[in-house]
């Protein structure tokens, strides 16, 4: 028997099955999703790199697999992919650190 884990890579291919329990919303979501990733003001490759960065920020293993593959398919190289993840890391780190201003404000308020 397969070892049970919270994430099963094979489930990624079953994403489309979410329409089984709510067809209309599911369909609308996938139509929107498809539209979002089309070449537009941003290229498909740029969108894929943004998705890769966001995948790391939201720590979604399915999305990391999907957008690593997709970034490679769109012609991105290792340097571009790692820089995208650093952007996510900088924003995540910055988001934590910028709150330290609030900490400083509160500490000052409570201190003599």
């Amino acid at each position: 028997m397969e070892k049970a884990t919270y994430y099963n890579p094979a489930d990624l291919a079953k994403f489309g099955n979410i329409t089984e329990w709510q067809p209309e919303m599911g369909r609308k979501f996938f139509d929107y999703y498809g539209e979002v990733f089309k070449d537009g003001a941003l290229t498909e490759r740029e969108k894929s790199l943004i998705a890769l960065a966001v995948a790391h920020a939201v720590q979604c293993p399915y999305c990391i697999d999907a957008y690593t593959t997709d970034s490679l398919q769109k012609g991105a190289d290792e340097a571009q992919m790692m820089e995208a993840v650093h952007v996510a890391a900088a924003i995540k780190g910055g988001a934590a650190l910028v709150h330290s201003v609030q900490m400083m404000n509160k500490a000052k308020e409570l201190s003599m």
Binding site: D39, T43, E44, R45, L72, Q73, K74, G75
Partner: peptide, 20 residues
């Protein structure tokens, strides 16, 4: 000629051409 250097499919030809 662009061949993927790994186990994935090539992306959109026109978009890759622009980037190259």
């Amino acid at each position: 000629v662009y061949n993927p250097s790994g186990a994935f499919l090539p992306g959109n030809q026109a978009a890759l051409e622009r980037e190259f």
